[in-house]
């Protein structure tokens, strides 16, 4: 899905719908199968396992304490899968496009810029941790509690240097807050249909509400 506006509206609608209603969580998964790119939504099978591990544990704990753990697992799976799909569909500059389109050149630009910088930093961190793991394996070591302080202080220092460089670059280019940006969106008919269905699922969820969220009280903590 190329249009980030429809993607954002869809993910908000579907996430709310999944939390509000179990049938709508199932509809959300169906929506994802029809409109989402299933194969590329999750990076790898390992990522999928990690993604589903937490709702699985929490769902099992809820089931074990006499609550509807299956319902919780399905809802959270729908929310996480759809979030993962949204991340996989993301393109560079998307936050800037969305920020400016929704909130204009001043606040929108700043919000978009913050989003872009944050996401690129996160991606950079993922890359760096991969490289660190490779480097450690060459020494015959693994990431363990003994070396975490050394590894992460080095990682942190590199991030400080990067942030400083970015700040200098923005200052050099005269950034004082806000900026001019002209977002261009490409929307296909199927994207419009996907968006309308997502909103439709949200509307349906209001009529079939069976909200279930885990609180501490769920487990009598």
């Amino acid at each position: 899905m190329q249009d980030p506006r429809i993607r954002l509206i869809s993910i908000i609608s579907l996430s709310f719908a999944s939390l509000l209603s179990l049938p709508c969580a199932l509809f959300t998964l169906l929506w994802w199968v029809i409109f989402g790119r299933v194969k590329t939504s999750v990076r790898s099978f390992k990522s999928l396992v990690i993604l589903l591990l937490l709702p699985l544990i929490m769902g099992f704990a809820a089931w074990f304490t006499g609550h509807d753990g299956v319902s919780y697992f399905i809802r959270m799976t729908a929310v996480l899968i759809i979030a993962s799909w949204m991340y996989a569909e993301r393109y560079q500059g998307e936050f800037l496009d969305l920020g400016v389109w929704f909130f204009g050149d001043r606040i929108g630009f700043d919000l978009g810029l913050i989003g872009e910088l944050s996401i690129s930093t996160l991606e950079g961190l993922v890359y760096e941790i991969e490289r660190i793991n490779i480097a450690l394996s060459q020494k015959g070591e693994k990431l363990n509690p003994m070396i975490i302080p050394a590894v992460f202080s080095s990682l942190l220092m590199r991030q400080f240097v990067l942030s400083h460089d970015r700040a200098c670059l923005l200052a050099t280019r005269g950034y004082m807050g806000g900026g001019t940006h002209y977002p261009v969106f490409h929307t296909s008919v199927s994207e419009w249909i996907a968006g309308i269905f997502a909103i439709f699922i949200l509307v349906v969820s209001f009529f079939s509400r069976d909200l279930f969220i885990i609180f501490c009280q769920t487990y009598n903590v």
């Binding site: 060459q138 070396i147 302080p149 590894v151």
Partner: peptide, 25 residues
């Protein structure tokens, strides 16, 4: 087999120069 990465900082797994040299056995 071993590879020196473009950013030598990735190889760091200790805090001091001596410990780092030692970590390469």
């Amino acid at each position: 087999r071993v590879m020196l990465m473009q950013d030598a900082g990735f190889h760091i797994s200790t805090t001091t120069v001596f410990k780092e040299a030692e970590s390469w056995k």
